[in-house]
Design a protein around this nucleic acid. Structure first.
Lengths: 217, 217
DNA sequence: AATATTTTTTAGATTAACCTAAACATTATC
DNA sequence: GATAATGTTTAGGTTAATCTAAAAAATATT
């Protein structure tokens, strides 16, 4: 079983490597984990000895298949807990990260199964990030910006481009969260504004908004 | 902020001292925490330096007011999480302890407030043990064995004497859990058996059973 | 290509939480 | 009340995860 520090390193490596596609530098890891380069070197030797990462001196690290699978389990737990905090305990999106950073290290496979069931097997977290399944597989649904969708569409909000906090508040107000069902009733050819049903309520949204909402195909 | 080990020591001292009423020996603590007496001595010096416990060499330790309050916060979290696991995630009574041992160390006052609200402010955990409130106060409701109750009574199950697993299974079957409402419809003078409504269902229970169910006055 | 800069590693310390073995206190027994 | 038995503390050591400072390797600059 991995220690808390090992889990955090593995997760950071996985994220910084952009899902395992490129090698991660020692300094980048040190920054990301708010620690020093020397500490990173120590730990990557340890993870390398456990075959969780591949490491070539002076040339950075990356996760092995084994390490990736472990990282994805931690990410799965993190995202399930975030979903729980927002959907069941009424936290807002921005409050949940730090609490989930702690909860993701709880060791109990049964707890995660039960939590998954309780949340009705969500595929994305409150930010729209995909939740890996129990086998560590990420099912990435094709995402289409809502402004490219036509009248008559029925689907689900998958993610939002959540850079601006005013935009997030607006989405919150109209109930447009990832996971929510959405229908396009009509689309105005002139300004590409739309009438949609989201969260069981009719709303008009401008193209400005619709292009930042990503939905299923 | 206390470390995980410090929290566990404090909790163990609080429990072994029977809520702070008697001093705790070094060896008793070592046994309870599955560690060695020498390690205990190290840690109690540390906790003593932080004024969380009072310690006199060779004569054991006990919690100070400050230490007791911290211990009760951990116990509060433990019992709220156990309640969550049983009520919301459908775990059984015997499965939750170890998971709650981990969850009790999550640091986030807001999380605990929200969890408390989500569970509708329970006063007892699934075992019937009282849940300290946010200020660390334990509201101990007067508990009366059900066999001493008369016809016409309406109240709530507070706790059960849960030594025997077959007994627990029986209680599970009839829905007689701490927190559940209970009514006494009739009592047979001959064998002191009762007809009660519990969990919205009529059941007959023997004195053997009723004396092991504790209810509010 | 030589030198400067940046990045990474190594060497050696530190801290928390644990350990074993030995020394020391307290309590029980004769 | 001396001695044996039990319980506790001290002394010194270990491990995981950090750190600083110095050495070494890779990369950038002139």
């Amino acid at each position: 079983m991995l220690s808390l520090a090992e889990e955090n390193y593995l997760k950071a490596i996985y994220h910084l490597s952009e899902d395992g596609t490129k090698d991660v530098q020692t300094n980048a890891l040190a920054d990301s984990l708010s620690t020093k380069a020397a500490s990173v070197t120590d730990m990557i030797k340890k993870l390398s000895a456990k075959s969780l990462i591949s490491y070539k001196k002076y040339y950075g690290v990356n996760v092995t298949a084994k390490g990736k699978s472990q990282a994805l389990q931690v990410i799965r737990k993190h995202r399930l807990w975030e979903t729980f905090l927002v959907q069941k305990l009424d936290f807002t999106w921005d409050e949940v990260h730090e609490i989930a950073e702690q909860l993701e290290h709880i060791q109990s496979p049964r707890l995660i199964e039960k939590l998954d069931e309780f949340l009705d097997y969500p595929t994305v977290d409150p930010h729209g990030d995909p939740i890996p399944n129990g086998k560590g597989k990420i099912v990435i649904k094709p995402q289409v910006p809502l402004d490219q969708i036509n009248e008559g569409y029925k689907g689900t909000i998958v993610a939002v481009k959540d850079s601006d906090s005013a935009f997030l508040k607006y989405l919150e107000k109209i109930g447009a969260k990832p996971g929510k069902k959405i229908q396009v009733l009509s689309k105005e050819a002139y300004d590409e504004s739309m009438e949609v049903i989201v969260d069981n309520q009719k709303v008009f949204i401008s193209k400005e908004v619709s292009k930042n909402i990503l939905v299923t195909e």
